[in-house]
Amino acid sequence: MEVAARPKDSIKNRIVDILSNNAILFLMLLLVSVVAILYPRFLTLANFNNILNQISVIGCLACGMTFVLLIGCIDLSVGSMMSLIGIMAVTVANGGREWLAIILPILAAGAIGLIKGGIIAGVNGRLGESFITTYGAQSVLAALALIIQGGLFMMVTATGIFTRIGKGANPAYVFFALIVICQFILTKTSFGRKLLFVGSNPKAARLSGVNIKFYFLMAFMMCGLISGIAGVLLPSRVMSANPTAGTNYELEAIAACVVGGVSMKGGSGSFVNTLIGVIVIGVLSNSMNLLGLSSYPQMIVKGFVIALAFALDVVNKRRQMQRG
């Protein structure tokens, strides 16, 4: 009976499979066509460039967040980290040392990530512990961002390389390069495979001889480094640094990862998921701006899309499990 049933629903199933596996992408295509009909300018090269420019900083942040989510933790402090790094970078850049202004803050961000990872690894923490610890870190880093320059808004007065990295398509190149490199690390190296193993089941990983503390440390350090890159790109893009610039960016980054399909339970997801999520959220915001929707109804739509993306994912998995 089972054998007889197979060929009959396989064509239908295959279509359903394709649709449901990529449901969120199809929904986005639908949205794109609607907006394109209403606003022909939506489908221009200029707008395409705008979208890339708008998503890149959040994209980098989401890319770093993915490491932490893959290992089953969360980092709520990346937003305030970005504020702090931005202030540091502009301070150094305005002093004339522009290369240093790019490299030094990123390294500092990596070091801060290492400290956070050290605490989480030290207490064998997972989602819950990392949630509270990084919330504490958020408060500390946000305060430091305000303290080091007295809370002032800083203009970028540098004129060299530092002002160019955030302009035009450059942030997008950085973002795509990060996605490619991280995806390579995740899928093609033993480090990446072990990271996923530790994320999906830290106890099993420990029993099979993996040094799980090392992977927690590395995940948070990568997240720190990459949010440092985002922190340097942002002031270069807007030519100023604001000590509260990164407020709430962490939630945007998490939302992008989750919409793309990175699991909050750790061990499942990839940087391709993150890329999809970042693009979906970016296109959504851009379309809503073009439709003249103010930022408040936009919040409702975003919340709905997050729940929808997750529900679709769950339904899809359940369907696949039923069919074995």
Binding site: I74, L127, L251, I254, A255, V258, S263, M264, K265, Y296, P297, Q298, M299, I300, V301, K302, G303, F304, I306, A307, F310, A311, V314, R318
Partner: peptide, 17 residues
Amino acid sequence: KINAFVATLAMMLMLKG
């Protein structure tokens, strides 16, 4: 079966919006 964090994050945005 939506993860509580994600479900309530979505709810948080929707309510505030």
